[in-house]
Design a protein around this nucleic acid. Structure first.
Lengths: 347, 347
DNA sequence: TTGTACGCGTTATCAT
DNA sequence: ATGATAACGCGTACAA
């Protein structure tokens, strides 16, 4: 007994396959009675149309793919949720795909376009360094969301993007620490080879120091251990602990992400110091956990919701032809909480 | 210009389509030279086989589907990662699918089976209450991983499952708090209508209290606000804050999950009390954040890695026919950290 | 309003 | 080792 298909349904109902097809796809010109009967038979026999056959035949499909690159960031999880809602609102369906570190997201996209007759693509995260030639092959509109450095060589009319200005936000946070009187500010950065958002945030730190004529000390820039998962609390803990164990000093720490900051704070406590009493700590991202941590975390909040919404809005506008590609940058919001404090004169 | 297909490649190479197909799929009987030439042409023309057509024709596909139900738990994210690795090790590919709260995971599975010619399915989370009749339609082997209550009526030979014994682990944690001298132990539970793991963990709490002849006080069982996301720190904060604001007292709190515990601890601090000085707090799950939180969190750690590995192991054994369905329960490990303490005599 | 027949891009069977 | 051709299950143009 093979799986039941549209032909079988047609036979049972004593109608042609096209009528069944029309009933399934809500075509207007089909007798309500026959339609009702067909749907009834379908239910009774638990008939499920084969999507592969459908996709093969169709030229469009109302499907949007979301490709997530790299770490399973809490951050992305939140974004996916709102994006999925937006997509559903437009009566499209979403297919989610995790792209491995060593996989090429555009290759994956190319494949999906064929298989699913995609109408649009959203790339979440990643660095996105691809040959323009390859990108050209992607005939489907796509938008890069919170992706790292996008080489400036690409024609900006061929895709959209939305993100925060990582460098500027990072500069702002560093400036805030400086305004509190701090001069010895450590930075917990990503691994040295990183060229993505990690690099941009380092640049912002550097700029703030330069603006204030503070010498940049290499020993204050802590790179994560490449053997520990990036952006994890573990990596923040390790970097900070090693720093303190070596007897180095600082009065403030700017961690490249909130999760890293949590690790750093714990390391400071484990060294017998307090936050912000002895050392101020600031993070980046604005994830919810920062609000509940003790001490609650000073951070730059990325407007996840706005970014997610903008991402899908732009994509749908392009799909509908109501606008061309564009690039939006959202401001982060600075949130001052308990983990940072003015440099006390005693230090 | 339509998309290039296998026929075009065949034409360019001056060979038949079957030869091209054989070259693509690494069939043994194809001349190495022609194969090389074909692959070269494919590369040059960026030909990508259409997966829909493939799935339509094939009867098997070496694909495993992972269906995740409900909240985008950090917990699941970690699991998916290891499961994906295991699947890749077996040279299978994974398709990930988020199932909405109001969607029927089995319906989704049924559809996917047809479309992708699935070889196996992994259900992550959810409550899994389905008619046996419907489950029977799922001809593909599946395993339920960390899913909540599975009605005992199902024939246990028709599927596999792996999880921890939520009730027993919950009982253990409550017993631990009792052993520390606590009697007024609050429980932060899920919303009242929950019948899943939330319910099981409440049962464990009740059992421990009964075992020790401690009267169960309804006012000490705090249900989450159904309007706030389940298992979130917000919901833990709200429940605890309301409790304290109403002037109620307890000396220990058992939160249904680590994230909920974080919210509760913060609420306790915001009320001017300390953890564990005034109130001890314990969580459940053993997520990494608990290690870095201040105070670090006493919890029951679910062996995520073991569970994930067991889940895929079982599935592949069934696929390979080397074993039948089975049901594994893993013990959680109790982790004592800073957030709990012996009841001081002053209280 | 309904039915017939063709084609979507692939793989597998059967010749050669 | 290779090529022609029949499915796979569906949607749709066209005919009725």
């Amino acid at each position: 007994m093979s799986e039941i298909n549209i032909k079988d349904i047609a036979k049972i109902c004593g109608v042609g396959v096209s009528t069944v097809s029309r009933a399934i796809n809500n075509h207007p010109d089909v007798n309500p009675e026959t339609k009702e009967k067909i749907l009834k038979v379908i239910r009774e026999n638990h008939y499920v149309p084969n999507n592969s056959a459908r996709n093969l035949k169709r030229s469009d499909s109302n499907t949007i793919a979301v490709l997530v690159k790299g770490v399973s960031n809490t951050f992305f999880t939140e974004m996916i949720e709102t994006i999925q809602n937006e997509i559903k609102k437009h009566n499209y369906s979403m297919v989610l795909h995790r792209v491995e570190f060593d996989e090429d997201e555009v290759d994956v996209a190319l494949e999906l376009v064929k298989e699913k007759r995609l109408r649009g693509i959203i790339f979440l995260g990643g660095y996105f360094v691809h040959s323009e030639e390859k990108l050209k092959r992607l005939k489907v509109p796509f938008v890069l969301s919170t992706a790292g450095s996008i080489s400036k060589v690409y024609n900006r009319d061929d895709y959209s993007s939305v993100s925060v200005d990582d460098m500027e936000e990072s500069r702002k946070m560093t400036q805030y620490l400086i305004d509190l009187g701090h001069r010895k500010i450590a930075l917990i950065a990503t691994r040295e080879s990183d060229v993505s958002v990690g690099k941009l945030r380092i640049d912002g730190y550097r700029k703030a120091l330069n603006d204030n004529n503070i010498k940049i000390e290499k020993s204050l820039i802590l790179h994560m251990d490449p053997n520990i998962e990036e952006f994890s609390s573990e990596s923040g803990y390790k970097a900070m602990k090693d720093f303190l164990d070596e007897g180095k000093k600082c009065t403030a720490v700017f961690a490249i992400s909130d999760t890293v900051a949590f690790g750093a704070i714990r390391a400071i406590y484990d060294s017998g110091l307090t936050v912000p009493g002895d050392i101020s700590v600031a993070g980046f991202d604005g994830i919810k956990a920062g609000e509940f941590y003790i001490p609650s975390l000073t951070t730059i909040k990325q407007p996840i919701d706005e970014i997610s919404r903008a991402t899908s809005d732009i994509l749908f506008e392009i799909i509908n032809g109501s606008s061309g590609h564009r690039h939006e940058i959202y401001p982060g919001s600075f949130i001052e909480r308990e983990s940072t404090d003015r440099l006390s004169s005693s230090k």
